[in-house]
C-alpha cells in the first residue's frame, strides 16, 4: 500500500451548506421582525452595523490574530460623521468618508502592528485604541469629551426624511451594506490572498518560502477590516445620533471580539448572527434583570465556548448537517 493509497482513507471534505440561502432567509427574517416589532428596528440596525465591524475581526481571526483595539476604527467612522455632519450632512457622502479615514488610519497603524503576532498584536491594538480614546476624552474643545457630540440634520440623497422613514432608511442601508460586505469578504476569503491569510495561522514560514510576504497579506486584511470598522461606526453614529469616546474604549473592542466568538468565524454570516443575538440578549436581559444583564451575556459566552466552539454559525451548520444526514 503506497503513501497515497493510505492517505485516501482520509475523510472527504464536507459539502458546503447553502450559505447564500441561509443569508437570504436571515435577511428576510430581519425585515420581518422589523415590520412586526418596529421598536426593534433600531436594535437590529445597530446589530447589522456592529456585524460589519465584526466581519473585520473575522478576517484577522482567520489569520489567527485577535485585535483588542478594533473599535478605534468604529470610533473613527462615528466621529467622522459627528465632526463633518454640520458641514456635509449627506449620509451617502459621510459613509464613504468614514470608511476612507478609517482605512487610512488602518494603513498607518497596520504598517506597524502587522510586524507582530498573537498577544503582542492584540495588545498593541489595544494600546493604540486607548491612545485614541484618551484623545477623544481629553480634547474637550474639539470633541466635547465624555459628553459626546450629537448628530443631527442628516440628509439621504438630498432628502430629509421623517423619523419613521429615516429609521427604515438606516435599517435598509445597514442591511444592504451588510450583504455587500458579506459577499466581499466571502470572495476575498476564497481568493489566493484570502487563502494565504488563513495560511498565516497555520504555516507562516511556508508563505515566506513561497515568496509571499505574510506581512503584506496581513496588512491588506487589516486595512480591509479597518474600513469595515469605519463603515460600522458611521452607521452606528447615524443610527444612535450620539457619539462618545466610549466607542473607542477597550470594552467596546472586547464586545466586537465577543460577538465574533459568539457568532463563529466559520462564515461571513457568523458576525451577523453573533451581533443580532448579542444585541437582542442585551436588550431583553437588561429589561428583565437590569443589574445583572452582563452576567447573562457572560453566561451565554461561556456556554458557547464550552458547548459550541464554532459559535452560533457552527451550531447552526451542525444541526443542519445532522438533519441532512
Amino acid at each position: 500500500m503506497s503513501a497515497t493509497d493510505r492517505a485516501l482513507a482520509a475523510p472527504p471534505r464536507t459539502m458546503r451548506l447553502p450559505e447564500a440561502l441561509l443569508a437570504v432567509l436571515g435577511a428576510a427574517a430581519l425585515v420581518l421582525v422589523a415590520f412586526l416589532a418596529p421598536w426593534l428596528k433600531f436594535v437590529l440596525t445597530v446589530a447589522l452595523a456592529k456585524g460589519i465591524a465584526v466581519l473585520g475581526i473575522l478576517l484577522l481571526l482567520r489569520a489567527g490574530q485577535v485585535s483588542f483595539g478594533h473599535s478605534m476604527f468604529l470610533a473613527v467612522g462615528a466621529y467622522t460623521v459627528a465632526f463633518l455632519a454640520p458641514a456635509v450632512p449627506e449620509a451617502l457622502l459621510l459613509l464613504p468618508l468614514g470608511a476612507l479615514l478609517a482605512g487610512i488610519l488602518g494603513l498607518v497603524i497596520g504598517l506597524f502592528v502587522v510586524r507582530y503576532r498573537d498577544i503582542f498584536f492584540g495588545m498593541l491594538n489595544l494600546a493604540l485604541s486607548m491612545v485614541l480614546y484618551s484623545l477623544l476624552e481629553k480634547l474637550y474643545a474639539l470633541t466635547k469629551g465624555t459628553d459626546g457630540i450629537r448628530v443631527s440634520g442628516l440628509t439621504f440623497a438630498g432628502i430629509t426624511p421623517d423619523r419613521e422613514t429615516q429609521e427604515w432608511v438606516m435599517f435598509g442601508l445597514a442591511l444592504v451594506l451588510a450583504i455587500g460586505f458579506g459577499l466581499l469578504v466571502r470572495a476575498y476569503l476564497a481568493s489566493p490572498m484570502g487563502r494565504a491569510l488563513a495560511g498565516i495561522k497555520t504555516r507562516e514560514t511556508r508563505l515566506e518560502f513561497m515568496g509571499v510576504s505574510a506581512r503584506r497579506v496581513l496588512l491588506f486584511a487589516y486595512v480591509m477590516s479597518a474600513v469595515m470598522g469605519g463603515v460600522g461606526g458611521t452607521l452606528v453614529a447615524m443610527t444612535t445620533r450620539h457619539v462618545t469616546p466610549q466607542l473607542a474604549y477597550w470594552t467596546s473592542s472586547g464586545e466586537l471580539v465577543f460577538i465574533a466568538i459568539l457568532g463563529g468565524a466559520g462564515s461571513a454570516l457568523g458576525p451577523f448572527l453573533g451581533a443580532t443575538a448579542f444585541e437582542l440578549v442585551r436588550v431583553y436581559a437588561a429589561a428583565a434583570v437590569a443589574d445583572a444583564w452582563q452576567m447573562i451575556l457572560g453566561g451565554v459566552l461561556l456556554a458557547v465556548i464550552l458547548f459550541a466552539p464554532g459559535g452560533l454559525w457552527g451550531m447552526l451548520t451542525s444541526r443542519l448537517k445532522g438533519r441532512g444526514a
Partner: peptide
C-alpha cells in the same frame, strides 16, 4: 497549510509563483 486541502496547498503555491495579489 494544515487547514487547507492538499489541492488548495498546491494551488496556493502555484498562485504564489504567478502572483497572489488578486483579492477577489
Amino acid at each position: 497549510f494544515t487547514e487547507h486541502t492538499v489541492l488548495e496547498n498546491a494551488a496556493l503555491a502555484i498562485a504564489a509563483h504567478a502572483g497572489i495579489w488578486s483579492p477577489f
